[in-house]
Simulated assay, not measured.
Amino acid sequence: MKKRDSLYFNQLQDYYAENGILPSFSGIASLVGLKTTSAVSAMVDRLKEAGFLVSMPDKRLAPGPRFYERKQLLEYVPAGIPQDMVNVGSDHILIDRFLVKEPSITMIITIKGDSMLNAGLLDGDKIIVERGTTSKVGEIVVAIVDGEFTVKFLAKDKQGYYLKPGNAAFADIRAKDELQIFGVVTGSFRLY
């Protein structure tokens, strides 16, 4: 993608984030400052070819498969002692593909409470939950205990399976009647 196309594309992403729709060709010209429809058409064609935009059956533009890619410029940022940065160039990550392996069985659920604090899950965090996958002892699961939902570590002892919180201020949970695993937590994120 040309450097100028990259700047135009960034403006289109911001416009889409604010409006939930991409502008018309004349709207794109106005947004990015192009003077002719042929220049807009050529730029849109390049963005389509790169997979950032697609045309819908009614000719409207829509986000393409690469529309939500985000640049990964650094390999990591140390949270401890400062170190030299390792630049990975301009790799791109699709956040959805990074977090979601199978969309048909994956959902996002909001955490409420602080019983998983020491597991790094805070009140208001979003967890990625895969339904229908086999859960293992030690994994974080969304469970249904006697008809009520909770998120905890799956644990097992001589008495059988139970749920262990990620906060010592909370007690282990054992089902009186039934313990079902709703899904396995595969990731999480939060907005600051």
Score class of each variant (00 low, 15 high):
L53S: 00
K71G: 05
F52N: 09
G138H: 06
G166T: 03
I21K: 15
A29W: 04
R131M: 11
K164G: 00
A143P: 05
A119I: 05
R97G: 14
G160F: 11
V137Q: 06
P165E: 03
I21F: 14
P65H: 06
S115Y: 11
V54W: 00
F170H: 12
I21A: 15
L94R: 10
K158S: 13
V44W: 05
M43K: 02
V32P: 08
L47A: 02
M107N: 04
Y68L: 13
K156Y: 03
Q180G: 01
G138R: 07
I109F: 07
K101C: 05
I95H: 00
A39C: 11
R66A: 04
D125Q: 05
G51L: 06
A143C: 08
V145M: 10
G147S: 11
K136Y: 13
V40G: 07
P82I: 15
M107S: 12
D45W: 09
G124R: 03
I108N: 00
D45I: 12
I21L: 15
D5T: 09
V184D: 08
K156F: 05
L163C: 01
T37C: 07
V86M: 12
I81R: 07
S41D: 06
L94P: 00
V88I: 15
L61T: 01
P103R: 13
D5N: 15
D123T: 03
P82S: 14
T106W: 08
S24M: 11
G80N: 06
L163R: 00
L163G: 00
G124F: 02
S41H: 06
K112W: 01
P57F: 02
D58F: 09
V137H: 04
L121P: 06
L7E: 12
R70P: 00
T37L: 15
D123E: 05
G138M: 12
A143G: 08
D125P: 06
Y16W: 15
S90F: 07
R97K: 15
V142P: 02
A62M: 06
Y76P: 00
V77T: 05
Q159C: 01
Q180M: 11
